[in-house]
Amino acid sequence: MITAPDYRLQRNAFGRLELTTAGGETHTGVVPVRAFPISAPDDGIGLVDPHGRELAWIEQLSELPDEMRALVESELSGREFIPEIRRLISVSSFATPSTWQVETDRGTTTFVLKGEEDIRRLDSPALLIADSHGIHFLIRDRYALDAPSRRFLDRFL
């Protein structure tokens, strides 16, 4: 059952999200932030103003009317950047720092892994890999990778 929230969202000419509260106050540059970006991406999304103050809380993305959900989703997709690694093509060395060439859901790229400790074990079998610039790469299921990728990865775990 979808109940319309008491605020309105729209996108302005600068591509920024605008939120108008029930009281008629308008905030520009509103940013949706997932509270659990990895473990539960669709549960709990905060709409915060540019100063980091929370304006609204979305319990579940599916609660929102379609139009607003589309706005929030498009804004999220423009902000979220956690490429998911599908395949490891090559690694420059098994000692760190090592340059990895990977195939992700967002295309092929290379990044530098500074140390093994930058590979974070999430709830098994997921892994989160931080590169030297702090971009996070996700491996959703490391056992589902193909054999060569698993062999590469194994040397770092």
């Binding site: 997709s77 423009g78 979220e80 950047f81 490429p83 992700t104 967002r106 295309g107 092929t108 790229t109």
Partner: peptide, 10 residues
């Protein structure tokens, strides 16, 4: 630049 508007590597 190494990303396109939809954040794909390009």
């Amino acid at each position: 630049i190494d990303l396109d508007a939809s954040l794909r590597f390009s």
